[in-house]
C-alpha cells in the first residue's frame, strides 16, 4: 500500500523530480568552483586541504590573474558598448523599414551565428596577419580582440533587439504621433523607452559572450592575457584558487544584477495592487 502511494507520488511529480535533477546537474560545477575557492591549496587546487578565506581576501594573489581579469573587463565593456550601438541600429533598420537588400542583410546577420568559432577565429587572424604591417592596430593584441568580439556580438544584439521591436504595439507610436509628438519625439519618448529593456538585455548578452569567449580570443590575442585564456593556460600547471574566487564572484555579481532587477520590478508591481 505504502509502496503504491509512493509510486503514484513519483509518477505524478515525475516532471518536477526530473527538473530538480536537471538543476542539480547544472549546478554541480558551480558548486565545485565555489567550494574550491575556499580550499587552502598549495600549488594545484585539486585536492581538498582545508577551509580558508585567504583566497577571497587576496583575489589577486596569483600572478597575472587580475591583469587578465582587467583586460577581460575592459574588452568586454568596449565590445559591449560598440556592438550594442551597431546592432541596435541594424535592428531598427530591419524592424522598422522595408528596403532593397533586406534578405542579404538578414543572411549576413545569420551567418556569424552559424559559423563555428574556430573558423571565425582562424579567418580573422589570417586577415590581421595579412595587414598587420600596414595597420599597426591589426597586430594581434588588445584591439584585435575588441574588433573580434564586436563582430560576433553584433548578430546576437540584432536578434535580441529586433525581437523586442517586433513585439511593440505599432499603435503606441501612432498614439504618440496623434498626441502631437513628431517623429523624433515619438522615438525618444515612446519607442526608445519601450525598446530599452531589449537593448539592456542585448548588452548583457554581448558582455557575457565577450567576457566568456576563449576560442576566437585565443586566435587573435597575441600576447595579451584574458581571464578565460589565463584559466586555460594555467590549468595545465594547476589552477590557482584565485581563479575560482574570481569565477565565483562573477557568478554572484551577475546573479545579483539579474535577481535584483527582477525583485525591483516585482516590488513595483506589488506596490499598487
Amino acid at each position: 500500500m505504502n509502496q503504491n502511494k509512493f509510486a503514484r507520488w513519483v509518477s505524478r511529480n515525475l516532471i518536477k523530480i526530473y527538473a530538480t535533477l536537471g538543476f542539480i546537474y547544472l549546478f554541480i560545477p558551480i558548486g565545485y568552483t565555489f567550494l574550491f575557492s575556499f580550499n587552502n591549496s598549495l600549488k594545484s587546487n585539486l585536492i581538498w586541504r582545508g577551509f580558508t578565506l585567504s583566497n577571497w581576501s587576496n583575489p589577486c594573489g596569483a600572478p597575472d590573474v587580475c591583469n587578465a581579469l582587467g583586460n577581460s573587463l575592459k574588452i568586454g565593456l568596449l565590445a559591449t558598448l560598440i556592438s550594442t550601438i551597431l546592432g541596435t541600429l541594424i535592428a531598427f533598420a530591419i524592424g522598422r523599414y522595408s528596403f532593397r537588400g533586406k534578405t542579404l542583410v538578414n543572411i549576413l546577420i545569420f551567418l556569424p551565428m552559424a559559423t563555428p568559432e574556430v573558423v571565425m577565429g582562424a579567418s580573422l587572424l589570417t586577415l590581421f596577419l595579412n595587414y598587420a604591417n600596414l595597420l599597426p592596430f591589426f597586430t594581434p593584441g588588445f584591439w584585435t580582440i575588441v574588433i573580434a568580439h564586436i563582430m560576433f556580438s553584433i548578430s546576437f544584439v540584432v536578434v535580441t533587439v529586433k525581437a523586442r521591436i517586433a513585439s511593440l504595439d505599432p499603435r503606441l507610436e501612432q498614439a504618440a504621433m496623434d498626441l502631437y509628438a513628431d517623429e523624433k519625439q515619438t522615438f525618444l519618448k515612446v519607442t526608445l523607452p519601450l525598446v530599452a529593456p531589449g537593448i539592456a538585455g542585448a548588452a548583457l548578452l554581448a558582455f557575457s559572450l565577450s567576457f566568456d569567449d576563449f576560442i576566437i580570443t585565443n586566435f587573435n590575442s597575441g600576447s595579451i592575457n584574458t581571464f578565460p585564456k589565463f584559466i586555460y593556460t594555467t590549468a595545465q600547471r594547476g589552477l590557482p584558487p584565485q581563479a575560482n574566487v574570481i569565477g565565483a564572484s562573477m557568478f554572484l555579481i551577475a546573479m545579483f544584477i539579474v535577481l535584483g532587477s527582477q525583485f525591483i520590478s516585482r516590488r513595483r508591481e506589488k506596490a499598487y495592487s
Partner: peptide, 23 residues
Amino acid sequence: LLVLVVAPFYTSFILRTIAWEQI
C-alpha cells in the same frame, strides 16, 4: 527558474569545463 537555467553561463565556460574535469 529561468534565471537559474542561464546562471551557469555566468561562470567562465572554461572554468566550468575544468571543474568537470576535476570532479
